[in-house]
Design a protein around this nucleic acid. Structure first.
Lengths: 352, 352
DNA sequence: TTGATTTGCACAATCGTTTGTTCTATAATA
DNA sequence: TATTATAGAACAAACGATTGTGCAAATCAA
């Protein structure tokens, strides 16, 4: 019984409606796209067409429509790891904005791999997305340049490329890092380790710049050996912390470049039998829902993730409406240092 | 200069290639879809066509292709909140599997709203997805029944509907809850609060059943007033915990139905000046990357999120290949109780 | 009544692919 | 040499929607 004679229902088309009403499919199309007035379709006809369309449960075929109009109302989203709350929050807000205006999002997870990123883009192009929102994984940008030359509207999020003529939405990584390290100095720390993310990305470069400038402001030289690490992942946090903690004298503070890095660092700290903030202070980039619930509530550099998503979508949309030409160079969003318990005030500077 | 005379590059089509090579577009199509042998296209022609396709940078138009073949190699994914790590992990694994076979995922966030869920489904249908993976938000299922009668392949994840003839992938919520509450009893707890999620969902029903059966096994009556709450969100966790903690005598343990619920509960516990596990023990559904780093490392019921995504996609795919007819009734994945520090062993039962 | 307008709609091409069928040389067979 | 196979490729019709233009009938002006 159950579904054994199931037959794939046939799709209702404009022609079906046209036949039933006794008009041409042209007329049906014009009615259903709200162009009755423009093409002088009588009120009576308009009424009947709408009625039967409703009765038949007509759903426009976006493939056919897109083929003809060259607009799919679909955008591609390429991010390195959708399971990372930082990105999934961005994704969510992009999707919400998109749906508000009847657009859909095709999601591609590049898995932190430039090759997969390139493939993803190809796939999205073949699906005729109207535009692209992308968080590029690496320092490589020639494939991005290619997209631009293609005329496909694009906005880059989280990272940006100085030489690329492409709208971007990023956090003020420089300011965020500067404030964090400033704060360490204010709390009398002098030896501050930095576990960085992927090197040569704008994100990382800017944060390092902030780290350095904070040192300069404080009149402290930068100890290059205190800058460790090479990715935004948890494992790198663990390794980086291990290295820092093994140094003598041990740094009194760690600045972690991502939420995952700080998680990894916490494991290392725990293993060394040290405690936060008594033995070691820590500030982490990326505010998370759980930040305040950690063993020691974490002082973090919060980025505006929701806003990033919303703004990115709106910029992309305006670029699409502007014939594909960018309407803005880019937007940088301020960060906020949220103070909690993971930084200890030292009584006296630890270094000479 | 930069891009001011930018012109949207024209799309390369089969016809373009055909013209250049001097064959018909039929031939080009057949070569490029690997049907040279089948249609006896000479090796020479095959070679040249492939060559020029490459040179011209041909990318097939999936819209046109889909229009003709009725297959888009695109699937819809509808989930209540992509920013929730539980769902984003599932989403990630779905996407990874999908891309392995050249499929794309259109993401829709229903925002825990049945109305939006219905709209999302409509939108996905109009985009001609080959199938749907959905985590329905509510207890309502008539719109799902409609999809099934439409013949659109679908698999439901996380939740399921007994009366619906649709493949599902869920966790063994009953077993997970049973083990957790069992464990509480083993640790001599007798008064165990349960902060539930959305009522009348299969997830919640099963967990409550586990909660009850564990009581029965232990020969303990269920105090209905200890079952509180009505959603999987953080706010509900806070409110639920507030209510439980205000009771006299205060329950000695709380079972939280989601990661967000336990986060909210922790705020309440903190506000009451209580500490975990000394004053109150807690077990939370959903293992998270941060679970072990919490103020008190959290004992959790871990679900197989990655596997859920991977399996869901594969089931959907096999259903599609099977002419839309389900190949399995459904799959339930075991949970695992991961022991940490948030449950205290009581020395003697607290109640009579 | 005649010509000019307006009203209301239909024709047919088009978007880029796929695919069942047909067509034309050439090679094989008798 | 006449006939039949076969290899190699082209024709043309879809798929479902949009859209510039054309064409009657109805209305109006004179």
């Amino acid at each position: 019984m159950k579904g054994s004679f199931l037959v794939q229902n046939k799709q209702i088309t404009l022609d079906n409606i046209a036949d039933q009403v006794g008009v041409s499919c042209t007329t049906v199309s014009r009615v259903l796209t709200g162009q009755s007035k423009k093409y002088r379709i009588s009120d009576r006809t308009t009424e009947i067409v709408q009625q039967t369309a409703r009765e038949l449960g007509y759903v426009p075929d976006q493939l056919a429509r897109g083929l003809r109009t060259k607009r799919t109302n679909t955008m591609g989203l390429v991010i390195p790891d959708i399971s990372n709350p930082f990105f999934s929050t961005i994704a969510r807000n992009i999707e919400i904005q998109a749906r508000k205006v009847g657009n859909s999002i095709i999601l591609a997870d590049s898995q932190e791999d430039t090759q997969l990123e390139i493939e993803s883009i190809r796939l999205l192009q073949s699906r005729k997305v109207d535009g692209l929102i992308i968080c590029p994984v690496g320092e490589e940008s020639t494939h991005l340049k290619n997209i631009i030359s293609t005329g496909l509207p694009m906005v880059i999020i989280d990272r940006y490329f100085p030489k690329l003529d492409c709208t971007y939405v990023v956090s003020d990584n420089y300011q965020g890092a500067l404030e964090a390290v400033d704060y360490f100095f204010k709390m009398s720390h002098r030896s501050i380790g930095y576990i960085q993310g992927r090197v040569n990305t704008s994100v990382n470069n800017e944060r390092i710049r902030g780290y350095r400038d904070a040192h300069e402001k404080a009149g402290q030289p930068v100890d290059e050996s205190l800058i460790v690490g090479d990715s935004f992942g948890k494992r790198n946090g663990y390794i980086g912390a291990k290295i820092l903690l093994a140094k003598t004298p041990r740094p009194t503070a760690i600045f972690a470049a991502s939420n995952l890095i700080s998680l990894g660092a916490m494991t290392a700290i725990q293993e060394e039998g040290l405690s936060i903030p008594d033995d070691i202070s820590i500030i982490s980039f990326d505010e998370q829902p759980y930040s305040e619930y950690l063993a020691t509530p974490m002082t973090t550099v919060a980025q505006q993730t929701s806003e990033t998503g919303e703004i990115a979508f709106k910029l992309l949309q305006s670029q699409i409406l502007n014939d594909g030409k960018p309407t803005t160079e880019g937007i940088v969003l301020p960060t906020e240092l949220v103070f909690r318990k993971s930084v200890k005030k030292l009584n006296h500077p630890t270094s000479e």
